[in-house]
Design a protein around this nucleic acid. Structure first.
Lengths: 209, 209
DNA sequence: GGTCGAATGGGTCGTACGGCCTATTGAGAT
DNA sequence: ATCTCAATAGGCCGTACGACCCATTCGACC
């Protein structure tokens, strides 16, 4: 019996390419794909894989955000382009069973899939200890999924170069005070402190355009 | 006779996955891969494909940089995660024959490979017109070229989330005043007014990472 | 019917930010 | 030998920004 998996990634080339490569491995079978977080949730309503492979950076709903809403039903492996510690911790906190960089070799990915399918939790070295810390302080993490629609609109404007309070207010037809309030809320949710960092996060999360 | 291609991308999953997916297409054959720009140059010394597939974002030597050194020997298709206009123009200027987002469907990629292999230049919709504009006005937003090395370092930091004057100063080992001076110079050259816009431009120009 | 969060808005306060001007040093170009 | 410019740094000033308070409205959910 082969391991059935679902792949979620917004880049078609990686999604389809990886899908075909994994399918060619005897004991692995790709039974579904999704181009963003929401699509992943939809797909999982009808089919139930043994393992989920999700990218962090996805439009609409990030991989981390999707994982939080899944409550770890099927075990998930999070893959990302930028293997940063912060992301790894967020992934662990969101209930991911594994974490891999997209630069990892295919055999490693296959091994990770088999390990996770058999119930193992795989995180490099002492990540487990960090997860415990996360549990003790279940505070801030997530972010993108926690943002409201209006907050995302604001980020989108910021990422397109509209940085002044007045300019933003004019384009959204709200008062300058409301703009500052929304920004304050965004800062708190994303654990940042100013507009420049907001732009960085917006683009990293794919909120632009 | 099938079309022989070489794939260059630093993310193993995409490189191997795409390689396998393309290889399964009857008239396409992957004869080599590379994990970065330099490796691509090495590979091309021993083998000569009909088409090259290169990612822009790669360590050591970017896809664009590699293309410049190749002088368009075999035609190349540039693929990227963020389909920004600036990158598309740079790719065209560097001698690329085609440009595609990683979000493009596989059939489109295959079609692009076939077209390029037969000598066509393919750029989505009216990119060709833009290229002509480029020739007419070789300096359009050459603000990027006008930036000094130090200014680019500053932008890189900004784009990575280091936004405070003190934080930037500490990382560059200069005074806070010098940081503000450099920023003022950047604002003038790029015709912007604050750090948030600087982050937008930095990423648009590919100064990040 | 009551609670909660999203979206809207107000006020105050301290400070970091950006505009503007000047100055010194050293490297590279003419 | 002169000149330009990048990189460094200081001062001054006005204001936009971010932190911390709070209030109202409306819809969703229980």
């Amino acid at each position: 019996m082969s391991i059935r998996i679902v792949i979620a990634d917004d880049h078609t080339m990686l999604r389809e390419g990886l899908s075909q490569a994994l399918d060619s491995i005897p004991d692995i079978e790709v039974i579904g794909t999704a181009a963003d977080g929401r699509e992943l949730l939809e797909v999982l309503e009808s089919i139930t894989p043994d393992v989920i492979l999700v990218d962090i950076e996805m439009p609409k709903l990030s991989g981390i955000g999707a994982l939080r809403r899944l409550e770890g039903a099927p075990p998930a492996i999070v893959v990302t382009m930028h293997a940063e510690d912060a992301q790894r911790r967020k992934a662990a906190a969101a209930g991911a069973a594994g974490f891999l960089s997209k630069s990892a070799p295919l055999p490693d990915l296959a091994a990770a899939i088999r390990a996770v399918a058999s119930g193992e939790q795989l995180f490099d070295k002492d990540t487990t200890a960090e997860i415990l810390d996360q549990h003790r302080q279940p505070i801030l993490d997530e972010g993108a999924a926690a943002l409201t629609a209006r907050e995302r609109e604001l980020l989108k404007l910021l990422a397109s170069g509209v940085s002044g309070t007045e300019d933003i207010a004019d384009q959204l037809f709200i008062s300058q005070k409301t703009v500052k309030n929304h920004l304050a809320s965004i800062y708190e949710k994303l654990a940042i402190t100013d507009r420049a960092q907001a732009v960085v996060e917006a683009i990293r999360l794919g909120i632009n355009r």
